[in-house]
Amino acid sequence: MIKTEHLSKIFRTEEVETKALNDVNLHVTEGEFVAIMGPSGCGKSSLLNIIGLLDNPSEGTYAFNGKEVGKLKESQRTQERKGNVGFVFQSFNLIDELTVFENVELPLIYLKISASERKRMVTEVLERMKMGHRVKHFPQQLSGGQQQRVAIARAVVANPKLILADEPTGNLDSKNGIEVMDLLTELNREGTTVVMVTHSDRDANYAHRIINLFDGKIVTETRKDAELV
């Protein structure tokens, strides 16, 4: 599903050039649960952004679902992303002005799905996330765990093949963290590919495979059912 070869990302400012990713070769097959770990600034989020089609690599190739997407324009990336990729962020990234229902509905609007169908899909996913009783609430009225469940609901409402989670439990207490990880595992079992960036060993253990990044390079890869690769 995801295949990168010699992927690099360089950030340039007037004075400094930072190589966030350096020759990254990554292969994720459909249905996998992959955790990306590493210290702050090692390039985890940059990699996730490129995988999620939010950003282009500076060098190398990136094939998503067999299609080369590394050099697409922003509008083309948006089209590729729509309905295929769901995002979950550490800081939830819900829109404060919108209700729970409207937040979850957002990707469906841009997919031009009819209002009645949207209502059905949003209600269904919120029920599943046990947030059905909170549809009319605003994000500020919810606890952190609840907000993240809404964010996950939004990420999966369009039934994407891939969920990208950037430290999904980073802002949560352990109980809520475990609940979120259980949800992601459940989604993965149902066939959704999950790529997650995390600092937490506990969360990483939910994954089939753990990739360690350091200074923009993959240094180790560990399979849960195998030894160090």
Partner: peptide, 13 residues
């Protein structure tokens, strides 16, 4: 931030 969230969720320019 809202613009970012919307774009991540599929909004075009």
């Amino acid at each position: 931030k809202e613009i970012g969230i919307r774009k991540v969720n599929g909004a075009t320019i």
